[in-house]
């Protein structure tokens, strides 16, 4: 009866069954992708500015260490991470300030200032950075990161708690 191009009832049933299977799989599968990837698609909020030191208390020339905590919301928990850095006054000029991160660019150990070496030493792999954060020796691939900052009316050093690459 039915020609070669006519769909039989059987074929129709088979195709419909397959289509229903596809609809259900998509109905659960597509939301599931969004569900599983949700944390990766979340926009992390930038932290609020943090006061790290009073400019008047920082001696010129010697890096002044500071640390601050940034609370991050991970899922239903807040994790406080401690970050640190150094405020370096290059001269008496209040604007002549550099703020370096203390996170080594090699494997994220904390660097310390060494008066003897006149540079930052990373205790993990004996890397040495100079006063400007540039790599002198050791494995680090790039210079120490820095923070954007401003000096407010009360003479506080206020930084944005986002580490930036130093070119």
């Amino acid at each position: 009866m039915s020609g070669p191009n006519r769909m039989t009832r059987r074929d129709f049933i088979k195709i419909t069954t397959g289509a229903i299977g596809g609809v259900i799989a998509a109905g659960i599968g597509l939301p599931a992708i969004g569900y599983l990837l949700a944390p990766a698609l979340r926009q992390d909020k930038a932290g609020k500015p943090v006061i790290v030191a009073k400019l008047a208390e920082i001696p010129v020339g010697k890096p002044y260490p500071f640390s601050f905590t940034v609370t991050r919301v991970n899922g239903w928990e807040r994790t406080a991470n401690v970050f640190g850095g150094f405020v370096i006054r290059l001269s008496e000029d209040p604007q002549d300030v550099r703020i370096l991160s203390s996170r080594c660019t090699h494997l994220s150990c904390r660097v310390n200032w060494s008066d003897e070496a006149q540079g930052f030493i990373c205790p993990c792999h004996d890397a040495l950075f100079d006063r400007d954060g540039k790599v002198v020796s050791g494995p680090p691939p790039e210079a120490l990161g820095h923070f954007d900052y401003e000096i407010d009316d009360q003479g506080n050093v206020v930084i944005l708690p986002v580490e930036r690459k130093t070119e």
Partner: peptide, 15 residues
């Protein structure tokens, strides 16, 4: 964690 699934995760309420 359940509240997180319900309120924060995309389609968590659906799953």
């Amino acid at each position: 964690s359940i509240q997180y699934i319900m309120n924060e995760v995309a389609f968590g309420w659906l799953i």
